Amino acid sequence: MSSEKMLQVENLTFEYIRRDEEGNVEGIKTAVDGVDLEVNKGEFISILGHNGSGKSTLAKHFNALLFPTEGTVWVDGLNTMDSQNIWDVRQGAGMVFQNPDNQIIGQVVEEDVGFGPENMGIPTEEIWERVEESLKAVGMYEYRKNSPNHLSGGQKQRVSIAGVIAMHPKCIIFDEPTAMLDPNGRKEVIRAARALNEVEGITIILITHYMEEVIYSDKVFVMDKGKITMQGTPREIFSQVDKLKELRLGVPQVTLLAHELQKRGLNIPNGILDRKELINAIKAYRY
């Protein structure tokens, strides 16, 4: 694996074994089915798919919460199946989950963010430096003395992101981080993820089923039934509106509107991603 690769997945298959009350095997479900995937350092990658497509199961392999039934996963050159690597893998690839309440343990925001580095044995002075930089990175520094219970969903999720950043990971995996948030909270979290990618150079992997969130990615992978069925830039993916509909996935509303206008004979480009692009395309068409 080259030094430029943050993640490399080869022929990954993961099976859940279902058992009855006596512990006998009832059935086997293949959640991830022969997936190959590469992510370079510093990229912003999105993995899309409806519920049950295997995207969250795949994500949990990226920081060794799950291990392959078959195939191999390397994180920053480390094979996750080698038990000696687990600590380094989890330190290198942090994870932000759906429900911030499951991740927040401290009574005060800054204590919560310092929890990870403290567990890593970082000296106290450096912990406070990390807490400060992490909270500033997600725009939550002024809340450092607050109790997490008094924060909004989006703010809590930003505190959990700060807790991951404080451990100085090279890669952060966001596993449907906005599923439980309102639209404003969703925007806050995606904005924080983009800033970490652009400013700090952290590799971001975003697992989501919200189309609007993936338009900033360098690359998008679409999953269905445990396999990767589409991959490309957001523009390439969103140029295939009908195929996405078949996979029970929507597209951003602006993209859909552009697609409908095209069908009615308006000669505008495929894969329009935001309002500004659509307005410019229509203006260019008229004159």
Rank of each mutant, 00 (worst) to 15 (best):
V35T: 09
V35N: 03
D36T: 05
L37Y: 00
L37T: 01
L37C: 04
N40G: 12
N40T: 04
G42V: 00
E43H: 06
F44R: 08
I45Y: 00
I47Q: 02
L48W: 08
G49D: 06
H50Q: 12
G52D: 07
S53A: 12
S53R: 01
K55Q: 10
K55D: 02
K55T: 04
K55S: 02
K55M: 11
S56G: 13
T57L: 07
L58I: 02
K60E: 03
F62A: 05
N63E: 05
A64W: 00
A64F: 03
L65T: 14
L65P: 07
L66T: 07
P68M: 04
G71M: 12
T72Y: 09
T72G: 09
V73W: 10
W74A: 12
D76E: 13
G77H: 08
N79P: 04
N79K: 13
M81T: 13
D82Q: 15
S83R: 14
N85L: 11
I86K: 12
W87G: 13
D88P: 05
D88W: 12
D88K: 14
V89K: 12
V89A: 06
Q91S: 14
G92V: 09
G94R: 00
G94C: 09
V96M: 09
F97S: 04
F97P: 05
D101V: 13
Q103M: 15
I104G: 11
Q107T: 14
E111Q: 14
E111A: 14
D112V: 05
V113Y: 01
G114M: 06
F115P: 07
P117R: 02
E118D: 07
N119G: 06
M120E: 09
M120V: 04
G121A: 00
I122N: 01
I122P: 02
P123I: 04
E125C: 08
E126G: 13
I127A: 05
W128T: 10
E129K: 12
E132L: 08
E133H: 06
E133W: 11
S134T: 10
L135Y: 00
L135E: 09
L135N: 06
L135C: 02
V138M: 06
G139Y: 04
M140W: 00
Y141D: 08
K145D: 15
N146F: 15
N146M: 15
N146P: 10
N149W: 15
N149E: 15
L151E: 14
S152A: 15
G153F: 12
